[in-house]
Amino acid sequence: MTNLNALLEGDTRQTVVTELAELIDKTVSNQSGLTGMALKSAVAAGKKADADAIPKGVNRLLPQITEELAPFWSGYESSDTQGFGSYLVSRENEVVEAMLGAADKATSDMPSAMQKAYSTLRGKAGKIVSPALPELGDIIERHAK
């Protein structure tokens, strides 16, 4: 049985941060409509202020993310499911709420423009996060073992 603490250590942490930041960029770029435009604008503003805003944010949130995913990881390890991504998808609503809970806790540390953008998009965040769960799980599994 493994735990997710390995994701927080040394080179593994940097690799996980990089891959999660890439997943976020890809997820944002795949958005469309008014929500997509708002999300893309918020991310662009954050990157204009700091080109490394996404990786820095992921690095800051990684302990909370691993804490939120830990119960799902334990359930996955004792299940017959093939792939952590598939396991997360099978518990989509719970996982999305856990991920959004981690983001909610972090909003107080965000710049006010990012807080405003997050609060505007929070209600639609589940639809943004859900399609990324398989790849999120794959990234976590690849580096946790």
Rank of each mutant, 00 (worst) to 15 (best):
129 V>C: 12
18 T>K: 00
138 D>Q: 14
131 P>N: 07
98 A>S: 03
142 R>D: 00
35 T>W: 07
36 G>P: 11
29 S>K: 06
132 A>D: 11
70 A>T: 04
124 K>M: 05
9 E>R: 15
118 Y>E: 01
47 K>G: 05
106 A>Q: 15
17 V>S: 09
64 Q>D: 14
32 S>V: 08
50 D>V: 09
121 L>T: 09
48 K>W: 03
140 I>T: 06
92 E>D: 08
2 T>G: 02
72 F>K: 13
44 A>W: 06
145 K>S: 04
82 Q>D: 04
97 E>D: 08
142 R>M: 07
54 I>A: 04
35 T>A: 08
67 E>S: 13
100 L>H: 01
38 A>M: 14
31 Q>W: 01
3 N>E: 14
123 G>M: 02
133 L>W: 10
59 N>K: 13
88 L>I: 07
96 V>S: 01
13 R>K: 05
22 E>P: 11
5 N>Y: 06
43 V>C: 06
40 K>F: 03
7 L>F: 04
96 V>N: 03
4 L>T: 01
77 E>S: 12
69 L>G: 02
143 H>F: 04
145 K>R: 10
99 M>F: 13
51 A>I: 07
39 L>P: 01
28 V>I: 15
91 R>D: 14
85 G>T: 08
139 I>F: 13
122 R>A: 02
69 L>I: 03
17 V>Q: 14
57 G>A: 04
113 A>G: 08
17 V>H: 13
114 M>G: 01
48 K>A: 04
108 S>L: 09
87 Y>R: 05
23 L>K: 14
31 Q>I: 02
80 D>C: 06
76 Y>H: 05
32 S>P: 07
38 A>V: 15
95 V>W: 06
38 A>N: 14
78 S>K: 03
70 A>W: 02
29 S>W: 01
140 I>K: 13
133 L>G: 05
91 R>C: 09
26 K>C: 00
81 T>N: 00
106 A>H: 12
127 K>Y: 08
126 G>F: 10
69 L>H: 02
13 R>S: 00
48 K>P: 06
14 Q>C: 14
104 D>Q: 09
18 T>I: 00
86 S>L: 13
40 K>E: 01
68 E>D: 07
64 Q>T: 11
99 M>C: 12
55 P>T: 03
58 V>D: 00
27 T>M: 02
24 I>Y: 12
101 G>F: 07
107 T>D: 01
7 L>E: 01
93 N>D: 12
71 P>D: 13
145 K>N: 05
54 I>S: 04
105 K>Q: 13
9 E>W: 12
136 L>N: 11
30 N>Y: 11
5 N>H: 05
113 A>N: 12
